[in-house]
Design a protein around this nucleic acid. Structure first.
Lengths: 239, 239
DNA sequence: TTGTCACAGTTTGTATACACTGTGTCTATG
DNA sequence: CATAGACACAGTGTATACAAACTGTGACAA
């Protein structure tokens, strides 16, 4: 594996900062301060800004530079809406084609991991990170098994929105998490038994409902603290 | 409207060149020759290459530069598969929300334009460009009417594949074009009458079938001339 | 008081010089 | 003759210098 270039690592670091809300909504990003903060010249910074703008995290205006894009609840729900049909399609295709051994094993491991993490009747904070990783692997494995080369890219784009990421889950309510993981079992079952329509419907509902849970969560928060800025990743969840 | 920067216009010119197949599949793109050819320095060239790589038209390897991505028929069909569910979703949402006056007028104009262009019983070469433009407007208007802010971007990405673009249509067979435009009428009808499920299904089939037509077209061409490079945009169609 | 113009400062866009890395070739040696 | 190593070259990555454009401020005039 070749060493990553500065542009790439700066892009990753900057993306994290933006997704964490380190810049305040709408904030204009100056190149020179960023360059000094990151310890590089303007060149990799400009490269990173352009990349993040194309990902949709920043807005660009010629000769006027880059600003942090502001996302409303509507934008987040839009991402879930789109993701639902895309992942539904991926699931349907995977069920039509069938899983290869590697994919089947990976999904079974995901299910086992989830079972283990949820065994004790709740999702404890120290189990949150592994559960999240399992959830990402589960979904990515299915997309890879779809055979559609474009789907992973498109789905990735639906994650490039603060709070809509697959790293975010509302995990306070155990029943919701448990139901979500139960969906995983049924989705796996549908794929294994070559039931494309069922797999599609299950996955669509799985993603759609996660969006609804997040929506309710955000509206509650917003009602409680109207002017609060987006919270950090980590205290919310459900894939 | 602010003047475009050189980076932007170079990006557009280079995208056209790649989509037209000016570079041969897999060809490695050198920055300096491109810069001389375009009459600019390496800076805007690098910016354009990075942008096109992120769009999926080029492949990038650190320290090794950019190459033209090669697309197989599978990639093109994957783009149509994904586009079908995305535009289906857009159509469903538009039917649920209903059209505003501006959107309704634009779609009606599209239908009238299509009727006029197809009136004579065939799509003549001089009518191809206007028909194509009408088709683009029709689809974009519906996506805008969906209220989903992410959908237009996602669909755009499915167009960033040679021969999968909305600018491409197989137009030789008048019956196929006529049927396609008849779909437009029914899709409009479903949206106006607030029939989300029908609108969704019609649009999915509309896009899916266009992919199948293109697939048959490509396989015929490929069988006839196995080693021929991708043909230019313009002699193929159907949105 | 308000509107307009000009100027200065700031910030972005582009060009270019330099550094680094990967690759291919040539030679020397087993 | 084959192979390993070093050197040279080509090409990308980064920094910096320079040019152009936008923004805000202030003064002047209507």
């Amino acid at each position: 594996m070749t060493a990553k270039t500065r542009s790439q690592s700066v892009t990753d670091r900057l993306r994290e900062l933006v997704l964490e809300g380190a810049f305040g909504p709408g904030e204009h990003l100056l190149e020179i301060p960023l360059a000094e903060r990151m310890g590089v010249s303007r060149t990799p910074i400009r490269s990173a800004l352009a990349a993040l703008a194309q990902e949709g995290l920043l807005v660009y205006e010629a000769k006027r530079g880059y600003g942090v894009r502001t996302f409303g609840i509507a934008d987040i729900l839009a991402a879930y809406e789109a993701r639902a049909v895309l992942e539904g399609l991926g699931c349907r295709l995977a069920a039509e084609r069938g899983l290869d051994t590697a994919g089947r094993v990976r999904l079974e491991q995901c299910l086992a991991t989830g079972d283990r993490l949820l065994k004790c009747g709740e999702l404890t904070p120290e189990n949150l990170a592994p559960y999240r990783q399992m959830n990402i692997t589960f979904h990515e494995t299915i997309l890879a098994a779809s055979g559609n080369t474009l789907l992973p890219d498109l789905v990735r784009q639906t994650h490039n929105i603060p709070l809509a990421s697959n790293r975010i889950m509302v995990w306070e309510d155990y029943r919701i998490i448990f139901r979500s993981h139960d969906d995983h079992h049924r989705i796996f079952d549908a794929i294994i038994n070559r039931q494309p329509q069922r797999a599609d419907a299950l996955m669509q509902e799985h993603v759609y409902y996660a969006g609804q849970v997040l929506k309710a969560h955000l509206e509650k928060k917003e009602h409680a603290q109207p002017k609060k800025e987006p919270e950090r990743a980590g205290d919310t969840a459900v894939g």
